[in-house]
Design a binder for these strands. Structure first.
Lengths: 166, 166
DNA sequence: GGAATCACTGGGCAACTTGTGCAGTGGATG
DNA sequence: CATCCACTGCACAAGTTGCCCAGTGATTCC
């Protein structure tokens, strides 16, 4: 479950230069190719690395506007609302949360005007009582994982000295 | 900027089976290898595809708790707060927004108790006036892009006529 | 009309990488 | 002490990549 330093370096390396192969990684990390291969397999099979899908920029696709919408759901309608939102392509992710709202979703749109259309489509569903939207202006910290990986690798070291078990 | 059907199919294929090579893609898509290579290059150089970094699951790293925090910032302290938050590994992303709060950030933590530590660290900074946190319980729609890509590819067709094969 | 441009095809070639297997080493475990 | 396991280092066949080229049809420019 936890990762050690080599795992951490591997992930960071992979994050920085995703297209390099196993052989090149082994050279950079100073370990045998088989080791890298085994580590990678393990990281993927225990779910630390989910995959290597292309990171697509919605802006470049023509959807430069991002917003977060907090939704309030009528009791017992949760499943229907989830199913509804899953059918809207502009809904990039959806969470159910504690606190004021019941759900939080990330939306994109072609323009601020288009955002209205998206929100109408999102909210135009019976189970949704209220929605409040926050439009994203800037994104000072884009979705990242490297600092966390480095911390996780350090922490593991702290406890065990090196290798990860499982 | 816009993508056509072949681009769309390429991205979807890549999203579903990220480890396949250019040659295999050309076979699946029924086009020449050089075409796939040229398309991929174009998609990357115009920013539609940002990269192929590994998708790391914070849960598997030992951070199973996700939360969203809405922050209210003291006027004129925005830059300082951004810099502060960027140093916290548990801050996975940060947006400045319109609406009630001034910023919205995604956090992870090792446990609900640990979340308190993270929030304290996030909020323990002078420019932050108030924070309200929503803990994620479920994630019915994980971050996705395929439906949007498919819509964008369809829309492009609508305007330009079908360039790509069936 | 005619020329130039462009995306795509299909082929070839050398260099490289991958998947796989295997023997050997050293540290940890019981 | 015997065992297990991660790791190394080597080897080989098969496959892939990067890069080249000539040819074709469609579109655009002069």
């Amino acid at each position: 479950m936890a990762i050690d330093r080599l795992d951490g370096r591997l992930i960071v390396l992979l994050a920085r230069e995703p297209r390099i192969g196993v052989l090149e990684m082994s050279r950079r990390l100073g370990v045998a190719r088989g080791t890298v291969q085994a580590r990678l397999d393990r990281l993927q099979s225990n779910g630390v690395i989910r995959g290597f899908g292309p990171q697509v920029d919605p802006g470049a696709l023509g959807y430069p506007v991002t917003a977060f919408a907090t939704l309030e759901i009528r009791q017992g309608q949760g499943a229907d609302v989830r199913a509804h939102l899953a059918t809207v392509p502009e809904v990039l992710e959806l969470h159910t949360t504690t606190g004021g709202g019941d759900m939080l979703c990330r939306l994109v749109a072609r323009s601020n005007a288009d955002l209205q259309r998206v929100i109408d489509r999102v909210v135009g569903f019976d189970g949704i009582v209220r929605a409040s939207t926050a439009i994203v202006m800037e994104n000072p910290v884009p979705l990242r994982i490297i600092p966390l990986v480095e911390q996780a690798a350090r922490d593991d070291d702290h406890w065990t000295g090196r290798r990860a078990s499982e």
